[in-house]
Design a protein around this nucleic acid. Structure first.
Lengths: 258, 258
DNA sequence: TCGCCCAACTGGCTTGAGCCACTTGCTGGC
DNA sequence: GCCAGCAAGTGGCTCAAGCCAGTTGGGCGA
């Protein structure tokens, strides 16, 4: 890292962005405040409008700021997190009769809605096939796609994969799966969830995800690839969760293994 | 979502980006391949260079593509993940005499390096103070900052916070903390790690983080706020992990609680 | 043969101009 | 008193041109 990377030799757009970032972090521009318009910024810094525009783009990329067409550019409000705890898999939550998402929504005083856009027999993606221990080149799974909303705001996209040979001709092929949801039906099939494995990563959303999650630029997604193991250590369900990272977090609380 | 959001009425830059994305996903442009230069793209699509440039910027934002000054724009190679498992806290890993990071690096055949840029008594950030149960308005903690490298590539930034009243006058104030690292010294103080709580979120990096982690545009970070609880449920250590999300993932494997 | 240098290519960034679409508030007509 | 419509302000996006800074390879001179 050369020392010149600091501020003197920096291009104007970065200098403007840095100056605005400083103002935001120091509180001069409070949360929700409106930034000067692109044309005004350009004049203030003696630059072209496109240069001011580029500075704002940099801040938007960092998730600091949001542009609203026709209105202005605003400092992004910190969003309170919608938190998914590892106890979402806990049996005791079953007793409430609510699915984990509805339970979490209720805790936060929000109205949950769950759409089921599709349920279909499919070839599994490679990573799912590997974890569910089924062939990737056959239509060996049932894919249930769910969209979750809290107060009509999209929160997460979930793709659940089940073995076709187990799910066929059961309620698992229906949108309404009955008491205790899919885990209830999977218990009927002899699978008691005993351990779970969650693989977590983060990335920028695809355009399709940005659209269904209604994401602003500069917001990444959290991806969780979840595997449920039964009392015999057999994987019987794999789900891919795609969360918007500006609204959601994950909480894992676990004992330290000897 | 209006149907016009599909492709006809789209601005040219998006149209070009979408076309390139299609070529990348279909494999026409394989991983590592060089895209046509900005000037060539512009001509191909009958657009200005700036418009082609904008299309490339969109793809870079999505993490699909990386520009190299003077060389060209290339399809980003999928990076193998450096995976941090929840067993990184496990006692049995102590027996190897390696810290969790060195152990994981060794598993993957890489050379681990850990820098300790600073160890200092400080006022804790609010979220840390709350979790460690210390006052936020006093210099109540010791802050140990660590930078982790695998094969000289930066992987994560870790800030560990310990109670000042416990850490003072111990090896916890030194870079070299002795056998079993800080957890060994904390056990000497009577804290056996019994449960852990990890709070996970994702966001875009700050410019400072992008610099120390050597991050390309379009790569988010995973942030883990970790709390260690002892045999009596008392929190005795809080750490903030900032991982580059293009190289690292997290793995949690845990029993389902009744 | 070796090595230096330069030309031609790449992306990085800015300029200044223009048109479009969305939002807001004011004003004038009914 | 109401409301339609317009004007002024905002960001969205494009264009054409230009200069700068890395990268590469070929050719020329020692």
């Amino acid at each position: 890292m050369t020392p010149s990377a600091l501020s003197p030799q920096q291009p104007p757009s970065r200098r403007i962005a840095e100056e605005l970032r400083r103002q935001i972090e120091s509180g001069d521009l409070h949360s929700g405040a409106k930034l000067p318009s692109e044309r005004v910024l350009a004049e203030q810094y003696g630059a072209a409008r496109n240069t001011a525009r580029e500075a704002i783009r940099l801040l938007a990329e960092q998730g600091l700021v949001t542009a609203k067409h026709g209105k202005g550019v605003f400092v992004r409000e910190p969003q309170r997190l919608f938190r998914f705890g590892s106890d979402r898999y806990s049996i005791k939550n079953r007793e409430t009769g609510l699915t984990p998402f509805r339970l979490e929504a209720k805790r936060q005083g929000k109205v949950a809605r769950i759409d089921v856009p599709s349920i279909a027999r499919e070839k599994p993606p490679a990573d799912v096939a590997e974890r569910l221990n089924v062939p990737a080149d056959e239509e060996s799974v049932v894919h249930r796609e769910n969209h979750y909303y809290a107060d009509d705001e999209p929160v997460q996209i979930v793709s659940t994969y089940l073995r076709w040979d187990e799910a066929r001709d059961t309620l698992l092929m229906q949108a309404k799966t009955g008491k205790d949801g899919i885990y209830g039906r999977l218990e009927d099939l002899g699978h008691v969830m005993t351990r779970v494995r969650d693989e977590i990563s983060a990335r920028m959303p695809t355009p399709a995800e940005a659209r269904t999650l209604n994401l602003l630029p500069g917001v990444p997604v959290l991806e969780v690839l979840h595997t449920s193991l039964d009392q015999e250590g057999v994987p019987f369900e794999v789900s891919r969760y795609v969360h918007r990272a500006d609204r959601t977090g994950l909480l894992y609380e676990l004992p330290v293994e000897k």
